[in-house]
Amino acid sequence: MASLKQLSSKKELLTGGHRLCAGCGASIIVRQVLLAADTPVVIAASTGCLEVATTIFPYTAWRCSFIHCAFENAASTLSGVETAYRALKKKGETDQDMRFIAFSGDGGTYDIGIQALSGACERGHRMLYVCYDNQAYMNTGIQRSSATPLGAATTTSPAGKVLPGKTQNRKDLTEIIAAHHIPYVAQASPSRWNDLVSKAQRALQAEGPSFMNVLSPCPRGWRHPPNESIKIAQLAVDTCIWPLYEVAEDKWRLTYRPKQKPPVEEWLKTQGRFAHLFKGNNQQVIEQLQAEVDRRWEELLEKTS
């Protein structure tokens, strides 16, 4: 594992001057992932905050080749780039070692883009797909997604007189992708940069598709001060809301075990989107969420033991 001092000597591929919100997790994740690359890369992004904010014509924050096509097709778009690369390599028109990385939000990954992602994984393109999971459709104004946790208030799952925010649990996308039995799958957080960068390195070394699901704090959507993004991401890891693990060649491994496992309440308290859970009769939603987090954590412990 490279040290921060070593990493800091690398040329960064994402510039400042992009228009993501102050304290956004997405660009932190992009920077950490790209520091893991030792070859030239081509980036594909799906429609979403990252794509919109980094490529407003005539400005681009990308120093490397970049393509955005549409919302639901980052995986199939990157399939096309990787296919072209193989075609040119076969013809002897390039001998450049390259890697292909997709960045997409939870909307473009868990929901509208899951088909294209599943297809690309099954076909075996050598590419890394990174989901920056901010747990809702933030780009269009905080609508719920299948990554939104139980009880979170979004603009399409608002807390009201009869409903306590989102009434369903979140989908476990990392496990869905692991079920494709591709060479490398991991869950990471920008608050554990060394864990994230090592995972990105392993993902880029994999001789086939790799997938990383990375928790991406969103000050606007989660309702927290922008300076707390990293702290809140780490609290999600410690409460086991967002466990850090990898599935390398079908071997499940926990990459971080919290010393203490604080109650989920500690994480919920940090964000305005859960404020209603601490009022009225909503305590039971917190209990439900705790039970679900515990159950999934126990399952994960079994898989990784």
């Binding site: 081509v42 199939s76 399939s79 096309g80 780039v81 072209a84 075609a87 040119l88 294209a116």
Partner: peptide
């Protein structure tokens, strides 16, 4: 989508 990207990749 793959055709668009492959064409944009010079093939």
């Amino acid at each position: 989508s793959a055709c668009v990207a492959a064409a944009a990749s010079g093939t």
